[in-house]
Design a protein around this nucleic acid. Structure first.
Lengths: 191, 191
DNA sequence: GCATGAACAGACCGGTCGGTCTAGTGGCTC
DNA sequence: GAGCCACTAGACCGACCGGTCTGTTCATGC
């Protein structure tokens, strides 16, 4: 991918986390990156197109992290799932506790834009599906009660996580993230 | 309170849930309510002042519901807490699954506005505190394990709920709300 | 019947928005 | 070295933004 385009996407991720979609003007992206407007509209059809590509880049990173953590055969499957979230928490910390881009854009735009609503819902669902596979593995090993609905549990895990990410954004602390993990993982196993 | 002001606040709640803060123009509020701009700026200092008052009205409703459900002495305390969330779920359903205003504005504005960040964080924390009181009552009765940290549990409950509310907004279903409640209440007691 | 001030009414303002347009530039191919 | 095209560059556009201003209406107290 062209270097200018990459620079724009990287800046877009950071700026959109901070200001949201409507709160972020094209001009600010251009000033921050030193890219002229002509280049921007050469690489992207519109602001919406740009934001959707920023989301794509973001979820690509998430899936890379999923791949890296979930397929690690040496750890127990439940450990791998928790390890994934712990890794994401560290990422949030490095970004100054601004939460999750999917949650931020989802909240802001789901009410007004079907395109974003569907897109982000799909991204979240896909992430949950990958976690569900690993949870199912744990269930079969007896690490989870045999009656556990692992698909639903993965959904709950992701949803609760997104809520904790929002709180992290509000309180500027990582504490909600830890708390939600402790609760969910403590709860799920000891049923 | 003046009737015009009330009309503006009521419309503001609905419109802000749908379009967010930055996505909602003053003009649209005025068209929807038939109120001229002069009246708007007579009742409110600015758009920000308006939004903060919309939030105030929203949390006042939430606290009224908390009062109504939590102080009901006939039900067990844990039942009352769950009953509160069930009531909120019905509210969301009536609004077409647009989620929670605190979550929506929190996500959109926490990164850019300290005023909103602090305000909404405070509102969420206060709600959690009231739930914690009821959870503590449950713990003392033996409905929760004696070791339960009820303050933290209340926080987790609220955070997870906000996450489910976001998902509800994305998927336009009440299902995530039910799932998170089932998980949390099933988990908390059977530890 | 007159003064007062809250509330209504909307024209108007500068600034910023997303987006377009034309021009220029550098490097590749033949 | 001519032609081509991806890319850079930024002036420019109409629309719309939040907010101000001037004026009017109307209920109330005296």
């Amino acid at each position: 991918m062209h270097e200018t385009k990459q620079r724009l996407l990287a800046a877009g991720l950071q700026l959109m986390l901070e200001h949201g979609y409507n709160g972020l003007g094209i001009q600010q992206i251009l000033s921050d990156t030193g890219v002229p407007k002509g280049s921007f509209y050469h690489h992207f059809e519109s602001k919406e197109d740009f934001a959707l590509q920023v989301v794509d880049a973001y979820v690509a990173d998430v899936h890379a992290l999923l791949e890296a953590t979930l397929s690690n055969g040496r750890r127990a499957p439940l450990e791998r799932v928790r390890g994934f979230f712990e890794n994401v928490r560290e990422l949030y910390e490095a970004q100054g506790y601004l939460g999750c881009l999917l949650g931020a854009l989802g909240q802001e735009l789901a009410g007004a834009s079907e395109v974003f609503r569907r897109k982000i819902d799909g991204c979240v669902a896909t992430i949950a599906q990958r976690l569900a596979v690993c949870l199912e593995e744990a269930r079969k090993r007896g690490d989870l009660p045999a009656t556990t609905n692992t698909v639903q549990m993965a959904e709950v895990l992701v949803d609760a996580w997104e809520g904790a990410a929002l709180r992290t954004r509000l309180a500027r602390t990582g504490q909600p993230l830890e708390a939600v993990l402790d609760f969910c993982f403590g709860a799920a196993t000891a049923r």
